[in-house]
Design a protein around this nucleic acid. Structure first.
Lengths: 69, 69
DNA sequence: CTTGATAGTGCATTATACTGCTCTTTTTGT
DNA sequence: ACAAAAAGAGCAGTATAATGCACTATCAAG
């Protein structure tokens, strides 16, 4: 699945902010279990879960026109 | 939920391409039922569902730094 | 080596997304 | 107004995301 890049981006962002999964789970309102699954590539998170995490990380989901190359 | 904007963007994009829900469901591989629910604001779609639709509409999901205003 | 912090996994339960079928409502074109 | 097309909703079944608990693995600091 190509959207794994998006997941990785979330994880990278968390790490660059030096926030633990535990902390991110707390401030985002997403369960620690769900976050762990997601970051370890096991998941197909819902938009709500993604939004909560993005929000907590100072990011936002957006749709962009695909660059045709 | 603020991510309703994202849903609306998908719907607007479909309409601007003059594609019916029926057709989009077919080409994206998402069930018509799920698409209808989503566009009518009832849903909390999974990343996979979003990705399929975005892909079919020539869009892509991305994460952006939130502009603090 | 031991301790503590962080990350990942197995299992079971609950909630809900996805699906197909059918029917109703709304919109569009003539 | 009528008919056709498109959108939306009710219901039921299946698949799976989210959750909590307990356990293991990895790593760094002492």
């Amino acid at each position: 699945m190509h959207y794994q890049a998006l997941i990785k981006q979330l994880k990278d962002r968390r790490e660059s902010l030096q926030v633990t999964q535990d902390t991110l789970a707390e401030i985002s309102g997403v369960s620690l279990r769900a976050l762990k699954q997601l970051e370890s590539g096991k998941g197909n998170p819902t938009l709500e879960t993604l939004s909560k995490l993005a929000e907590a990380l100072g990011l936002e989901l957006s749709l962009q026109l695909k660059t045709n190359r």
